[in-house]
């Protein structure tokens, strides 16, 4: 790449004028490109605008019959209705959200706190068996979450909890999610830790710091952004988890936002007005979307890093 670039440099000066002229985008092209980009923006925004407009529809029609960005007499009635009682089950939005929050926060904290020290070992220590253990973690990562649902269901069902089993509780669903989220957190954090230069640690070690001091006082502070991002991804997994909770949970008081949202969808919800469904979608999506937007630079960097390794 570098050689290609340099071999052509002598010729450049001669044609400098022609190039600088070419760089400016002609008005015709500018308009053409703007039109294309606007069309793409419209396609991207279309479903979002549709849900927003549905959610504001005050007429409480069971089904939408026309496309309107701001429906006549727009109101937040649907949001009010969803807040009170989103599904036919006697649970409020707050209860559902609290359950989702418990799953999300639990998975975020647990996977990061337990995962980071293992990630540090994978990133820095050359112990016997390291390659084997890393391969074990990678193998688990390859399997989708659904791939272990049968044994997790059967095993958690054997653990008694109150008058039911661990399977039929948020705690059990949390364990089942962590079974996949912890290996992911380890691998993701290892990717980040690999990018932290070793100079600081070596300096610390020369100054007589113990392994623990290096880890807690040098590595962890440097890794805070990575911990935050991995924690957020764990939170996202718990907040939007559907398959395991749908399979495991039977008590409406344990249900999560995603389960309620699925209950309100399309053909299965003849009783649910579409404005309520739309309001619910936005309420589920909004909190995580906002955080995602704020952290996007780090998250995408991490994901591509992970796939390159």
């Amino acid at each position: 790449m570098a050689t290609q670039a340099t071999t052509h440099t002598p010729a450049r000066t001669g044609a400098q004028v022609r190039i600088s002229k070419k760089r400016d985008l002609s008005l015709g092209k500018q308009v053409l490109y703007q039109a294309m980009l606007l069309a793409i923006a419209f396609i991207v925004l279309f479903p979002i605008l549709w849900v927003v407009s549905l959610s504001l529809d005050p007429r409480n029609i069971s089904r939408p019959t026309e496309l309107n960005l701001i429906p006549p007499g727009a109101s937040f009635k649907a949001y009010q209705a969803v807040m009170d009682k989103p599904t036919n089950n006697p649970v409020t939005f707050t209860q559902l959200a609290f359950n989702s929050l418990k799953l999300g926060a639990g998975i975020a904290l647990f996977s990061v706190l337990i995962g980071v020290s293992a990630a540090y070992v994978f990133s820095r220590f050359d112990i016997p068996g390291r390659r084997f253990l890393m391969l074990a973690v990678l193998t688990v990562l390859m399997l989708p979450a659904i791939g272990t649902i049968a044994p997790l269901f059967v095993l958690l069902n054997k653990v008694p909890l109150g008058n039911t089993s661990l399977r039929d509780s948020l705690l059990g669903v949390g364990f089942a999610i962590i079974s996949g989220a912890l290996p992911f957190a380890i691998w993701n954090l290892k990717g980040y830790l690999d990018t932290i230069p070793r100079d600081l640690e070596e300096a610390g070690r020369i100054d007589g710091a113990s392994h623990n001091q290096v880890f807690f006082q040098i590595i962890l502070p440097l890794a805070i952004p990575a911990l935050a991002v991995t924690g957020f991804l764990g939170f996202l997994t718990g907040w939007t988890e559907f398959a395991l909770s749908w399979q495991f949970l039977t008590h409406p008081t344990d249900f999560t936002l995603s389960m309620a949202l699925w209950n309100m969808t399309g053909q299965y919800a003849g009783q649910v007005p579409w404005s309520n469904f739309a309001a619910m979608s936005l309420l589920v999506a909004a909190p995580v979307a906002v955080v995602y937007l704020a952290l996007q630079k780090y998250i995408i960097g991490g994901l591509t890093l992970g796939s390159v390794k």
Binding site: A41, T265, V284, A289
Partner: peptide, 16 residues
């Protein structure tokens, strides 16, 4: 604008 499909949870996108 183009980042929006990534930031919305896939669960919500699917039901919408």
């Amino acid at each position: 604008i183009y980042i929006l499909p990534i930031v919305l949870p896939s669960l919500v996108i699917a039901v919408v």
